[in-house]
Design a protein around this nucleic acid. Sequence first.
DNA 1: CTGAATCCGCGGGGATACTG
DNA 2: CAGTATCCCCGCGGATTCAG
Lengths: 127, 127
Amino acid sequence: MVTKRELKALPEGADLRRADSLAREVFSDVANKWALLIIEALGERTLRFSELRKEVEGVSHKMLTQNLRTLERDGLVDRKVYPTVPPRVEYTLTEPGRALRATVDAMCGWTQQYLHHIEAARNRFDA
Amino acid sequence: MVTKRELKALPEGADLRRADSLAREVFSDVANKWALLIIEALGERTLRFSELRKEVEGVSHKMLTQNLRTLERDGLVDRKVYPTVPPRVEYTLTEPGRALRATVDAMCGWTQQYLHHIEAARNRFDA
DNA sequence: CTGAATCCGCGGGGATACTG
DNA sequence: CAGTATCCCCGCGGATTCAG
C-alpha cells in the first residue's frame, strides 16, 4: 500500500527521468528556446506565419516551420490554411497549448524578476 | 503616465522578444532540456556530481559540467567543494534556482497531464 | 571523484532557390 | 505568402585522456 504522503513525496515528473519515455520525448520537444518563444508569442492571439516570424526576433524561416510542425504534431497549436492566393496560414494555441503557455508565462516572469540578481551573480562569477 | 491597466496589458516577457537583450540570453541558458532536467533533479536536495549524473538519465559528463557551470554562473545553483581526496562537490539550488524550479515543476506537471492528449494528437497527425 | 582539454563526427540550423 | 528541398558549414556534444 502506498500512502498519500509517499505519493506526494514523488517528484511530479517522475518518468521524465527515463530517457526513453514518451514524457521525456515530449519534454524535449517543448523545453527548447524556439518552441517556448513561439508559444509565448502566440499567447491568446492568432498569427500568420509571417507575423509570427516578426514577433519571434531572430528565428529563421526554417526553425520556425520546423518548430511549428512539431507543435502542431503534438497538438499544441492549430494550423488553419486558407486556400486563397497567395495562401494564408494562421496559427493558434489549442487548449493544451494555452495550458502550457501559463507555465511559460511563469518562466518569463521569473526571468524578469531575477534579472538583476542574475546579472550580479554573473559579474561575481566572471571575476 | 502609464496606468496600471496598461502595464498589465504588456506581455510579461516583453523584452524576451529582443534577441540581443540580457533577458533573452538568460532565457536561452535556462530554456533547454538539460538545464531544466538538472534543476528538476536537484529539487530540494543537495547532490554530488556523480549522483546528479545518475539522476539525469542520458546526460553526458561534458553536458552536465557545462550546464552546471552556466547555472552556477547565473546564480541558480550553489557549488560547494570539499577539499578532500578524492574531491567531493555538492550542488544545491539557490533561492532563485528554487523559484525557477517551481515553474519547471509546473511544466513537468503539464507534461504528465496532457501526455495522453498529446499521444493521440501525434497518432492523428502521423496518419 | 570532479573537471579541463582535445579530438572529431554528425546534425542543427542558416542561406538560397524553387513550387503552389 | 507559405512550405519544401538542397547545399554547406559551424559548433554541439560524445568519447577519451590527463590533471588535481
